[in-house]
Computed example of a mutant assay.
Amino acid sequence: MKEIRLTRGFLKKPINSVLILLSIVLLIEALSWSIGYDIKAHKVQQQGGSVHYVGILLRSLILPEIVTLFITITLLNYFHKWLKLNAVENDWRSIGRYEVRFFPVLLISFWVFNPVTQTIRFLLSRFPDYSIGDYWNQYIVDTYAWSVYFTYLFPVVLIGYTALNISLLQDFLHQRREAQETAEAEAAKAAQEALALSATFLPKPTVPSSFLTYLKGKDALGELDFPVNDAYYFTIEERFYYAELTKGRYMISKTLNELEAELDPSQFFRIKRDYIVNRQAV
């Protein structure tokens, strides 16, 4: 596979960012509890218990940052459209150049998502005591600072490139599976064509005849098995049945009625009641 077609299936569904964020939050929480259990337990007590702690975590962190990731991944998706990135060559150098092109997007994404994220955080955290002054000063003006920017930079770059590479890997695996299925289908088709071609050169099986082909005859010298086609005719004399051959006359055990039923009608026909004649002998 020389190139990877960029369908961006993962990036087109920004809801996938929720899974990434929740995984990171759960990992951080698990690490913080395992490293500083006493500190975390004290913090939970200060917040009024585990229910209040989880509520604050949702309102101040998880839900606002879902908006952050939603906007970031949407920017990555639309950046593909703006640059008309539809495919990337399947080698490390090309993939590296492809990913470097998105670094500026992640650097400037803060200036796009920050006002939206902070607005969501304000609405959730300060409910129902809203103040326009607090909103503007604490959640907008004060957040446009380098300290806040660099706080966001690493996780945004990490999660952005994680989403970008998951999308790229999905496209690669999907196209490789398609290529394998196509190759298998072509191989099966070629095998069928080869089998059909070889069948034309094979001798056709002979269908066994359903008509009588051999008879046993008897004369003064003994018995003889002979092909029925060698007989000129079959007849009856004095209640005995005979086959007339080039070699002579032989007594047979079958009656004319039996012979008429068992012989090939295209080869033999009956004359009156006493004879069944071979057409080739006429």
Rank of each mutant, 00 (worst) to 15 (best):
263 L>I: 02
57 L>V: 11
262 E>S: 14
52 H>K: 12
97 R>I: 08
165 N>K: 05
6 L>Y: 10
12 K>A: 14
229 N>C: 09
92 W>H: 10
144 Y>N: 01
282 V>H: 04
7 T>Y: 14
134 D>R: 04
10 F>R: 01
125 S>F: 06
60 S>A: 15
258 E>M: 07
228 V>R: 01
133 G>W: 06
233 Y>F: 14
150 F>D: 03
76 L>M: 09
116 V>G: 06
48 G>W: 07
148 V>Y: 11
14 P>D: 01
112 V>R: 02
87 A>E: 14
166 I>H: 01
69 L>H: 10
203 P>W: 00
222 G>R: 00
21 L>F: 11
275 Y>F: 13
85 L>D: 09
213 T>N: 08
43 K>G: 14
190 A>M: 04
166 I>A: 01
18 V>E: 07
137 N>Q: 11
209 S>Q: 03
208 P>T: 00
144 Y>F: 11
89 E>M: 13
33 W>F: 12
159 I>F: 13
80 H>M: 09
77 N>E: 07
73 I>A: 11
26 L>N: 08
141 V>S: 06
252 I>L: 09
54 V>D: 04
197 L>G: 11
125 S>I: 03
156 V>C: 10
131 S>D: 10
151 T>W: 14
192 Q>L: 15
134 D>L: 06
242 Y>G: 02
70 F>R: 01
267 Q>L: 12
96 G>E: 01
225 D>C: 04
129 D>I: 08
18 V>I: 15
94 S>C: 00
184 E>N: 08
248 G>E: 05
66 I>A: 08
142 D>C: 03
41 A>S: 15
220 A>W: 00
191 A>E: 12
138 Q>F: 15
46 Q>Y: 08
12 K>Q: 15
237 E>D: 15
282 V>I: 13
238 E>R: 13
116 V>C: 11
95 I>M: 07
240 F>Y: 13
275 Y>S: 04
253 S>P: 06
148 V>R: 11
107 L>K: 06
246 T>E: 15
102 F>L: 12
103 F>H: 08
117 T>P: 06
2 K>M: 12
101 R>L: 11
53 Y>H: 14
142 D>T: 08
220 A>H: 02
147 S>E: 11
27 L>V: 06
144 Y>C: 04
82 W>M: 13
202 L>V: 04
268 F>V: 03
214 Y>C: 01
147 S>Q: 13
57 L>T: 13
87 A>F: 14
219 D>S: 01
127 F>T: 00
32 S>G: 08
24 I>V: 15
238 E>I: 09
48 G>F: 04
147 S>V: 12
188 A>I: 12
207 V>P: 02
183 A>P: 02
19 L>W: 10
97 R>A: 05
214 Y>A: 01
195 L>I: 00
230 D>G: 00
246 T>Q: 13
123 L>Q: 01
197 L>N: 14
146 W>K: 04
25 V>C: 08
221 L>W: 08
114 N>T: 15
194 A>L: 07
194 A>W: 04
146 W>C: 06
3 E>K: 15
25 V>F: 07
75 L>N: 05
121 R>M: 11
29 E>W: 13
204 K>A: 03
41 A>N: 14
53 Y>A: 15
147 S>I: 10
27 L>Q: 01
244 E>W: 10
62 I>S: 06
89 E>G: 09
45 Q>Y: 10
214 Y>H: 09
58 L>G: 09
138 Q>K: 14
103 F>D: 11
263 L>R: 03
128 P>E: 00
152 Y>L: 07
103 F>K: 09
156 V>H: 04
